[in-house]
Amino acid sequence: MLAVACIKQVPDTTQVQIDPVTNTLVREGIPFIVNPYDTHAIEECLRLKDRFGFRVAAISMGPPNAEATLRKALALGVDQAILLSDRVFGGADTLATSHVLSAAISRLADQEEVGLVICGKQTIDGDTAQVGPGIATRLGFTQLTLVDRIEHIDPQTRVIRVRRKLEGRHEIVEGPLPAMLTVVRELNRPRYPIVPMRLASTEAEVQLWNNEVLKLDVNTIGLKGSPTWVSRIFSPEREKGEIIGDGAHDPQGAARMLIQRLLAKDLLPL
């Protein structure tokens, strides 16, 4: 049985700047990282590999340099890495992206039964949390979002029971396999790559699947297949704060002032 981790290369958002003229992200010179939530998706797939002997594939749609992200997954222990890259995939919104990823997963399923698809709950650059559910919908998989614990999984009876982390509560949900999970950080602690695997990952194969392989209708993918587009990106203006009080010389006075201000704004429940 195959477990598929869907991962994305994202710019390190702490270092992102917005071009004031074009209103787009300045990507030049900005280091890329694996979307942090996706590292938990990889980890969970690897745990299924350790527990049940699942084979693990990592797939990523992106430009050719996204190969680096897949190599990181290989260093962690995934068995197969596939880069979905083609000019016609570019400019995709979440819908178009889910078409490409679903097609890739279906292609994988032709060879080997796919039991689980695991995605991060969202990416830190787009923050939509729609691609995972999109895949589940396209493939007709059980859709389990915001998973913070896999309670039970049985590849034989094809049942999975997970805990979902919701606002102020948890929800235990059970469903049949195959399933698509989106996962939160609390799910696991990602492993650290050991050196022999890192070295091996530099030589391991990253398969490249373009649209000649997937053969998707160009009207359903890329910019053409995207009903939504970004019209503007901007940093919200923030009023400059002021320094009040003198903590260095009068810490008690400063503390008193802080408490009074917080009380005045009703931020200190007493």
């Binding site: 390190d12 702490t14 270092q15 280091p31 990282i33 602690r189 990602p190 492993r191 650290y192 790559p193 050991i194 050196v195 022999p196």
Partner: peptide, 29 residues
């Protein structure tokens, strides 16, 4: 660290920060 990836939990952040941002705190360069 290199053969077993076994180390105190706190170090995972350190190692990742060093690799991605070249400083122990992970503050933007």
């Amino acid at each position: 660290v290199q053969m077993e990836a076994k180390f105190p939990e706190e170090l995972l952040n350190l190692f990742e920060n060093m690799e991605s941002r070249s400083n122990p705190w992970g503050i933007a360069p």
